[in-house]
Design a protein around this nucleic acid. Structure first.
Lengths: 261, 261
DNA sequence: CATCCATGTCCAATATAACGTACATCTGAT
DNA sequence: ATCAGATGTACGTTATATTGGACATGGATG
């Protein structure tokens, strides 16, 4: 379930890698955990985890919270993240764009990016009739499960895509197997059309629309999405896509443009 | 100028510590740097820095940006920081409070916290007549230079304060030496009164007001501040302090209250 | 009471990470 | 052309970080 980067068996893990594995794990769990639980759930030696957790605590990267020795992500990470956000200043424009999209369509609008080799919703604006959205902000999910995923890897070659996406991520949440070649065909189609839409794979009642937000290098640095009830989505398809494209045009080149420097 | 944590000379540094030293350094500089520059400026072996930078790049903790092999904080840090912000959900209330403060006083309002053993402005709302504020958001500065600093260490014993604050931080920006005992006396006074105000040490034309925002443990987890022209500040002292105290009361216990869990 | 498990600490063995040094380019100055 | 500095790479040495396992504790269970 974890440990994607284990190259060979029986090798010692580097402290740095384990440390960030711990941080990522806490982010996924979204709750404070005891060092012991962390060790057990990520399959790392307990003594190593205790050592690393203590180091991270000293650095303010982790913090005690929730009692009983539980730890969670620390304030220092917030400061570092804020510095990133400040440098690549996309938040303000992004927020305004989502607002406008939600106003125009009354549907749920999302701003999405890659998180390593997975997909994540960076910001979301709920629509007029909020329903239970299947993926929360900050949760990272397999790329093939999402419409945006087709766009976010479109700049890679077929082989690079296969190397990039963990093989098990082609197993869909309903248990079905998505042929990588099928996925790649959809990627190429999405690339040509500059959009991708489908009935959600993750749930059974929504339709998803995604368009690319292009960064400095010209490929999709992010996506804008609408998540709609299936009937609504199909009925308003053209209008929704129009709104999305206009919105994306306003953000293009912005997500990777530094404010200064 | 750096390397506060060097215990004994001639010792090897731990990779993790160096890594976070690099991250913190980039945050301070607020710009992309070449690995070589980083090594030179933090006084670390070049080969070590190159190795660590490459590791951090692989993890998405650092990113290439600015060309010429320059690196800066990466997207992964943004995600981790967002998870922290989501867990300790203070941003929304904080933003609203600063807005209100700025409206009521027309002065610059700040929300400040400790960053390790230094002070940093987490969020700021500019007042009606924006002047050049001496400390930007995200820059960390010595605790003794700030009004908030008196409040943020008030829960520590005298000895703990002396151990906590790096000795060189008692050297003020104008070159004067602030006696630690004088500082501690001010801390105790601030603790009794539940506020601290003074003419800024950092510049020569502002007056600073600070009140504590109390966290779960009952001590100052953060502060709210007003930075005003000296005349204005002295003329409106009582009203400003009133606004600050009301605002802080609205945030009390909030900064460390988890949204869930 | 005896057992079991979860939790945390301590310690020695050894795989390896951090470091110094040498080397290869490239650029600009003299 | 020659030199000096800045930048990045490669590699062997050695200090040490990672690890497994022993040990201690406390709560729950039978």
């Amino acid at each position: 379930m974890d440990a994607v980067q284990d190259e060979a068996a029986g090798k010692r893990a580097r402290g740095l890698d384990r440390a960030f594995e711990i941080l990522d794990f806490l982010r996924q769990k979204r709750q404070a955990l005891k060092p012991n639980e962390i060790a057990a759930q990520i399959g790392a030696p307990r003594s190593s985890v205790y050592e690393l957790v203590n180091l991270l605590l000293q650095n303010g990267i982790l913090e005690f919270t929730g009692g009983e020795g539980r730890v969670y992500l620390g304030r220092k990470l917030y400061f570092l993240g804020a510095a990133y956000e400040n440098h690549f200043d996309f938040t303000r424009e992004c927020e305004a764009t989502l607002e406008q999209l939600a106003d125009e369509t009354r549907e749920t609008a999302q701003f999405c990016m890659l998180d390593g080799n997975r997909y994540t919703v960076v910001r979301m604006r709920e629509g007029a009739r909020p329903f239970r959205i299947s993926t929360d902000v900050g949760q990272s999910v397999p790329i093939p499960w999402t419409a945006s995923g087709r766009l976010l890897v479109a700049h890679l070659s077929d082989q690079e895509i296969l190397n990039f996406i963990p093989p098990q991520d082609f197993r869909l949440p309903n248990g079905e197997w998505l042929e990588p070649q099928t996925f790649i065909a959809e990627v190429r189609q999405a690339e040509r059309e500059g959009l991708f839409t489908f009935n959600s794979i993750v749930d059974s009642f929504t339709h998803c629309f995604a368009v690319p937000v292009r960064g400095e290098e010209g490929h999709a640095a992010a996506t804008l999405c609408l998540v709609t009830p299936r009937d609504d989505g199909i009925a308003n398809r053209d209008r929704y896509l129009d709104c999305l494209k206009k919105a994306a045009a306003g953000l293009d080149h912005a997500p990777t443009r530094p404010k200064r420097g």
